[in-house]
Each structure stands twice: as C-alpha cells, then as structure tokens.
Amino acid sequence: MDILQKIVLQKTREIALKKSLLPADQFEKSPLFGKAGKSLSSALKNSKSGIIAEFKRRSPSLPKINQHSPVDQVASAYERAGACGMSVLTNTHFFGGTLEDLLLARAATSFPVLRKEFIIDEYQILEARAHGADVILLIAAILKPEQVRDFTRLAVDLGMEVLLEVHDEEELDRAFIPGIQMVGVNNRNLKTFEVNLETSKRIAPRIPAEVVRISESGISRTDAIKELREHGFRGFLIGEHFMSTQEPGGRAAEFIKSLES
C-alpha cells in the first residue's frame, strides 16, 4: 500500500467517525456557510506574482517543517507579503493540520483561502464551507470522474471554487470537466514523493486555455516561476520553501519582492 492509499484509508475512517457525531446538516448553521466566497482564480489572473502561500507543519516526506509558527500570524504575514491567497493543510494524521487552522486563517485575512485536503466525500465540502474555505482541492488520483463532477457542482452551489490537482495527462483527461476554474499540476509524485518541475511543463498544453494553470510543489526559485510562466502558468503554490523558516511571511515577502522586481 503506497502513501496515497494509506491517506485515503485513514481519511475514510475519520469521516465515518465524524458523521456519527456531527450530521452534515449542522454545518449550515455556521455563520460562514452562507457568506460569498472569494475568487482565487480572479486574484491569480490579476496578480503580478501569482503566489499561493501554504501553511504546512509537516508531511510524510518531511516530519518536521514548522511546528511553532501560529497559523493566524503566518496568514496575516502572507497577505501583507502580497500573496494572492493561502493554502491550509487540514489533514491531521499525515500533515499535522486541523480545521481550526483553516478557521483561524480565514479570521485573520481577507484574501482567498484554499482548504487543502484529501476530499473523498461531500461531507468534507460542507465542512470546508462552514470553516471559511473559498476554494477546495480535488485530487484526480483518488476520485472517480463522477465524483469530480458531483463535488464540483456542490462546491459551486456553495459559492466556492475548485482546484483540480493532476499528476499526469491521463488524470487530466479523465477528471477535468467544464466548471472547474483552476487546474493544478502537482510536480510531486504522491506515491514516491519525488519532485520534477518538468511535469508542469509537459502537461500545460493539455489544460484548456480558459482555465487558470497552477504549478504545485518543488518551487523554490524565482527563475523556475519565470520558466513556468512561459508555459502559461499563472499560479504557483509554495509551502515548504516558506514554512521551513522561523518567519514564513518574511521569506514570502522577500521572494515576492524579488519576483516582481
């Protein structure tokens, strides 16, 4: 069993437990549930940097990235640095994130916030909206085409955008449907955790022109972003490069200033 399969198995168990305690209709009582979402795709189209800054404490490949920086302070610093939006890991078992991280990031900022999670059930989408998410991540590798379709429709109905994550051409061709605003190419193989930026460049021509292209994982140089822009990418999700310091917001500010100069 590879790491992706382990994550999905653990997530399946967690969702079953949550459903036994908190019915999905309870999420509609959240004051955030009916609020209009903020558009990450529009922010990226109008941005000079295209940076989506991520909050991540750890990962299966890096057990200690940053265990100390408070999420609300990091979120505020990312926004001041000029990031277009923020990605918040909410997976606890493998990444050390929580839904409270998402809630605090939303409370501390006004830019779009993405819930980065292994979504396999509509319950998680309702949960995301109730905790202030503007965007959800759908990972093609763990979803059937009909799930992508149904989850996208639900997200849009709730006022959220969808970022579809793919790792190769087959996933893109199988999972993409009209209505998805953004496609993210993950340069990290979720089965081996190896990173190769050439993955983004190779898949870019297959992504519809009207869809915002986002490159994810392994980006730590401004030169890499300039290269990726030549392939039509408008968004760049960066986590470890920022979070592996004592001041993630400070590093993000330096990076964005260098990128825009």
Rank of each mutant, 00 (worst) to 15 (best):
D173M: 11
A130W: 01
F94H: 14
A130R: 11
K116R: 13
A81V: 06
K64V: 15
R234D: 06
L126P: 00
I120Q: 11
T98P: 03
S69T: 15
L158I: 03
V148W: 12
G218S: 06
I120H: 12
D72G: 00
L143N: 15
S47A: 13
D134H: 04
L228R: 12
S200W: 00
L114E: 13
I52F: 10
L126S: 04
T92M: 04
D25Q: 13
L17G: 02
S244Q: 13
V185Y: 12
G132E: 12
Q181I: 02
A141T: 03
G250K: 08
D72L: 04
S20R: 12
K6G: 00
K45S: 09
D121I: 01
L62E: 14
R115G: 03
S200C: 06
S261L: 07
A128V: 06
L154Y: 08
R153M: 08
D2A: 01
S49V: 06
H167C: 01
A36W: 02
K19R: 14
K64Q: 10
I219K: 07
K6Y: 03
A252I: 07
G37Q: 10
E254I: 01
A155I: 02
E170I: 02
R58A: 10
H68R: 11
A224F: 06
L172A: 12
I139A: 06
R213N: 05
L237S: 09
V185M: 05
K18C: 08
Q246W: 05
S39P: 07
E247Q: 10
A43P: 00
E227G: 04
D25I: 08
A108R: 09
A140L: 00
D2L: 02
Y78H: 08
S217D: 03
F193D: 09
A128N: 11
L197S: 11
N66E: 09
H68S: 13
Q67W: 10
M86C: 07
S47F: 07
E198N: 14
S110N: 14
K116A: 05
V156H: 14
I142A: 10
T222C: 12
A252S: 12
P205N: 11
L259D: 09
H167G: 13
F233I: 08
G37V: 10
M182I: 03
L228N: 10
Q5M: 02
F33R: 02
L103R: 15
Q5N: 13
I207D: 10
Q246R: 14
M160C: 03
F233D: 06
K35E: 13
N186K: 00
A53D: 09
N196V: 00
A16C: 01
G249Y: 09
I214T: 05
A140P: 05
R234T: 06
K64N: 11
N91C: 04
K191Y: 14
E117W: 01
M243S: 04
K257H: 12
G34A: 08
P23I: 02
